[in-house]
Design a protein around this nucleic acid. Structure first.
Length: 896
RNA sequence: GGCCGAGUGGCGGAAUAGGCAGACGCACGGGACUUAAAAUCCCGGGUUCCGUUAAGGAGCGUACGGGUUCAAGUCCCGUCUCGGCUACCA
């Protein structure tokens, strides 16, 4: 078989790696530098691998094989993110248990990945659906449950960084005396309100088609991210994780990570920190506005700003307290608790009607109405605390109950949304900010046509007139704080993470609810004992959704659902399950120590392997997986289980591979490329090489079938560089000799070593392959090929095309794998050429080229250029104004 | 609407520090080998014009219009197009 035939070669070497355990990684090796390179592990879908998977996987595999040859201790694992809806939907259709489907799919994925020759340490393989794995997912949940966030705690972590704010054990939560006085039950409820995992009853996104509630992050344009089904809002008791407690740290600690700026930017936006002030407005009770305001102000001056506003007071949040004098109305979210008490009898029916309509609206409807503002006047008025003006109170669904305080002061002169609303309902517009006089860059205020949202100086603002926006903000915030009417405040766009789902195929919660004598939940909870984990799924035959927000697990047998604790208290199991994100939040930790049954990760292994040095995956996980993981990581860090505060040092997003027609690959477009077909026809090495040769890793690029043939031909040329195709058996060509290489051969080799090494370091695999093609083209033209030169080249090729490289290495006379051979070093002295060709320009245009010694200086170069015939002809009759001579680069004569 | 990224031959792309634009590959054309084909090997190529169809030469070329510079795909200003993200967060 002397012709290059990928199939038997690839099968043979995959077998060799497996039987020799070539890529098995040993734990911490003191003194040996580690490299942890991670792929975003796949969801093993029924349709198998698509060509997008091997893109990132090949890139990491090249980095790993290269790093091993450079002597690093490399951790390169693979596993399965295998909980999730498709397996359960399949169970609904066919009755097959999701575990069976999942295992079949994993087998397919594993077979396909092994077929591509990736150097994973398969002994570290894990699946999120394995009870030995999700035992620890449940354990981590309990750690989060047993943690509260102390925002004022100052401390220095094991990383030596001083921080303010820490997740601490719930037992350390200070209990206020009045709560303590009410006894243990009150204390337990108080603690429950402060845990990082808590139950809340709030409007949530219920997706009837998927039979589950969804997190905000899983909703796009009012529809489910998966399947694009409609979503409605329902008030339901749900588990929430207090990610907002970590909002500041999640935003700030992005800074030093080597991530794409766009991803950092998206995370910061998602967190959406804004700072401003909370201000209280008293609702007007009768016509004696002045007296009411004075009394209330007097009370506030002595008592200060209360934690919760007293009845009849509306608390608002604003980023522009400097526009307080421009308030002409206020808006409450339709769900705001004060709405019904403020509404006058004459407005009540209209208000109630509006509330009903907006509660039925899905988020999609609300978005559609973005262009046209809707709202209803409540009939009530509030008193502006800074100028005593009476302002009407409206309700409108452009104010969200879930952000800030659910109420705003409306300043139509200086806020676009308020402006649109005021125009629609004929509400007065007052200007309180003017452009800075004499500042040419500032835009003129034109309140006839639009709101003026720029910064400027204050007008119509009483004693504050003439102040710059920034000073004004600081000053009035101070003044409001002193008079007990307001305070500085920070808000986040980020909401707490809705953590429960109603599906079967997810991790059960290790939580029990206490029941009273009638069998009703008391609201108090107990946890499963750590040593009793994991909580396994109940056996079920019927996977049809309940059709209601009642979770699937509620259909389990009573044996699973109920028990009586040792103190006689009856308990019912939590029947929600965890979202798919749970398992993927910490899998990178488990890879370091996947068989440990004592703890989720051995601290020594964590210290050695973490953080992940290189993490490659799709950009679609910019704000979901990557934010959730960082959050869990920080909680575990605060609780002392981890020694690094960030999980992923360097992140790279591979670009999507499009179909041959330049469109996104999809079954419906009929442009899907199946990796199995490519491997069958050309082999895994060609697929790997082509995916890397297509273009820069991070770029979106279309598939070209003929391109695969191109790299396949290249491998054929490499093969023929040393193998005699006409021989019956594997025989080296006679031109492969043990002789000394020529200086030119040496120079080309060492240039190639340098280029390929540098290119791998910056993940520029496409140009690395180009350089190896150039080497091959050159060597093909050489009659005698030095064995040592070829051997060094094969090492360069091996991370990209490992199978053919092993085979050629073997034919060159080596018994062992080349996976551990040292990476070639280049000799800078050999890179230097004796002569160089240098272009000569006249007035910036290339007129000639001269060949000079590589070491000649600027003056010698100029002299050589001037001696050139063509140059002389061009210089004839002209006067030289200037000469630019850059040694080794070019000469330019500026003439007139 | 806002923010980010990108526009280079017929196609994918290269040019790391402002210094020969188009490396490498695909597709295409020509040739060699062959009875023939496949495979392989060699050669060619941005574009317009001048030159007898040749050798050779001149001009124009990195989305478009300006600018800086001896020199711009690369830096600056403006415009257009495409892609991604985001969209009532007060």
């Amino acid at each position: 078989m002397p012709r290059y035939d990928a199939k038997p070669i690839e099968a043979r070497w995959q077998q060799y790696w497996e039987t020799h355990q070539t890529f098995r990684t040993e734990g911490p090796v003191p003194g040996k530098e580690k490299l942890y390179v991670l792929d975003m592990f796949p969801y093993p879908s029924g349709s198998g691998l698509h060509v997008g998977h091997p893109e990132g996987y090949t890139a990491t595999d090249i980095v790993c094989r290269y790093a091993r040859m450079k002597g690093k201790n490399v951790l390169h694992p693979m596993g399965w993110d295998a909980f999730g809806l498709p397996a359960e939907e399949h169970a609904v259709k066919t009755g097959t248990h999701p575990r069976i489907t999942t295992e079949q799919n994993i087998d397919t994925f594993r077979r396909q990945l092994k077929m591509l020759g990736f150097s994973y340490d398969w002994s570290r393989e894990l699946s999120t659906t394995d009870p030995a794995y999700y035992r620890w997912t449940q354990w981590i949940f309990l750690q989060i449950f047993e943690t509260w966030y102390d925002a004022t705690h100052e401390w220095t972590g094991p990383d030596g960084v001083h921080r303010r704010g820490k997740g601490r054990p719930i037992a350390e939560l200070p209990i206020p005396p009045d709560v303590a006085a009410q006894g243990t039950e009150a204390i337990r409820r108080y603690q429950d309100r402060h845990r990082l995992a808590y139950v809340s009853e709030a409007p949530v996104n219920w997706c009837p088609a998927l039979g589950t509630v969804l997190a905000n992050e899983e909703i796009i344009d009012g529809r489910s991210e998966r399947g694009s089904h409609p979503v409605v809002r329902l008030p339901l008791k749900q588990w929430m994780l207090r990610i907002t407690a970590y909002a500041d740290r999640l935003a700030e600690e992005l800074e030093d990570l080597k991530w794409p700026e766009s991803i950092k930017y998206m995370q910061r936006n998602w967190i959406g920190r804004s700072s401003g002030a909370e201000v209280d407005f008293s609702v007007q009770v009768d016509s004696s506005v002045e007296k009411q305001l004075k009394d209330w102000q007097g009370k506030r001056a002595s008592l200060g700003f209360p934690a919760e506003p007293e009845p009849g007071v509306i608390r608002i949040y604003t980023t522009r307290p400097d526009t307080l004098f421009g308030v002409t109305y206020m808006v409450l979210a339709p769900e705001h608790p004060l709405v019904s008490s403020i509404t006058t009898d004459s407005q009540r029916s209209q208000v109630e009607d509006y509330i009903r309509r907006s509660s039925l609206k899905s988020d999609l409807d609300r978005t559609d109405l973005a262009k046209e503002k809707s709202g209803v006047f409540t009939g009530g008025y509030a008193i502006n605390p800074v100028n005593g003006q009476s302002v009407p109170i409206w309700i409108a669904d452009y104010v969200l109950i879930s952000y800030g305080t659910g109420a705003i002061m409306a300043v139509p002169g200086h806020d676009e949304r308020d402006y649109a609303f005021a125009k629609a309902f004929d509400i007065p517009i007052v200007q309180v900010v003017a452009p800075v006089p004499g500042d040419k860059s500032s835009i003129a205020a034109d309140l006839e046509n639009s709101a003026y949202t720029e910064l400027g100086i204050a007008v119509n603002s009483g004693a504050y007139d003439g102040m710059k926006t920034d000073e004004f903000k600081a000053k009035i915030t101070r003044d409001l704080t002193e008079s007990g009417l307001g305070r500085e405040a920070v808000n986040y766009r980020l909401r707490d993470w809705l953590f429960s789902r109603q599906r079967y195929w997810g991790e059960p919660f290790p939580i029990w609810h206490e029941l009273d004598d009638q069998g009703n939940p008391t609201g108090l909870m107990r946890t499963d004992a750590i040593d009793s984990l994991p909580v396994l799924h109940p056996h079920m035959e019927d996977f049809k959704p309940t059709g209601t927000p009642e979770p699937m697990l509620a259909k389990a047998t009573p044996e699973w659902l109920f028990r009586t604790d040792s103190d006689g208290v009856k308990l019912k199991r939590e029947t929600n399950s965890m979202p798919q994100w749970a398992g993927s939040c910490w899998y990178y930790l488990r890879f370091c120590d996947n068989l440990n049954s004592e703890c989720f990760i051995d601290p020594e292994k964590e210290k050695y392997w973490l953080p992940v040095d290189l993490y490659i995956g799709g950009a679609e996980h910019a704000v979901l997986h990557l934010l959730y993981s960082r959050f869990w990581h920080k909680v575990l860090f605060d609780r002392g289980y981890l020694s690094h505060s960030e999980p992923f040092q360097k992140l790279v997003n591979q670009g999507m591979i499009l179909g041959e027609n330049g469109e996104k690959m999809s079954k419906s477009r009929g442009n899907v490329i199946n990796p199995d077909d490519i491997v069958r026809e050309y082999g895994a090495d060609s697929l790997r090489l082509y995916e890397m040769f297509m273009g820069p890793l991070e770029q979106v690029k279309p598939w070209q079938s003929t391109g695969v043939e191109g790299v396949y031909r290249f491998l054929g040329r490499v093969w023929r560089l040393m193998i005699d195709e006409r021989a019956e058996t594997m025989t080296l060509l006679e031109s492969v000799v043990d002789a000394e290489p020529t200086t030119e051969q040496l120079r080309v080799l060492h240039k190639t070593i340098k280029a390929v090494t540098d290119d791998i370091d910056r993940l520029a695999f496409n140009t690395a392959i180009s350089r190896m093609m150039e080497f091959t083209n050159f060597m093909s033209g050489q009659e005698l090929r030095s064995r040592s030169v070829l051997e060094q080249f094969i090492r360069l090729l091996s991370p990209f095309a490992p199978h053919i490289s092993e085979e050629l290495w073997h034919v060159l006379g080596h018994e062992e794998t080349l996976a551990w051979e040292p990476w070639p070093q280049y000799d800078p002295a050999l890179l230097i050429e004796d002569t160089v060709e240098v272009p000569v320009q006249i007035n910036g245009k290339v007129r000639s080229r001269i060949v000079v010694s590589a070491t000649c200086d600027a003056a010698e170069l100029q002299a050589a250029a001037q001696a050139d015939d063509v140059v002389q002809k061009n210089l004839e009759g002209k006067s030289i104004v200037k000469v630019v001579s850059v040694p080794g680069r070019m000469v330019n004569f500026v003439v007139r």
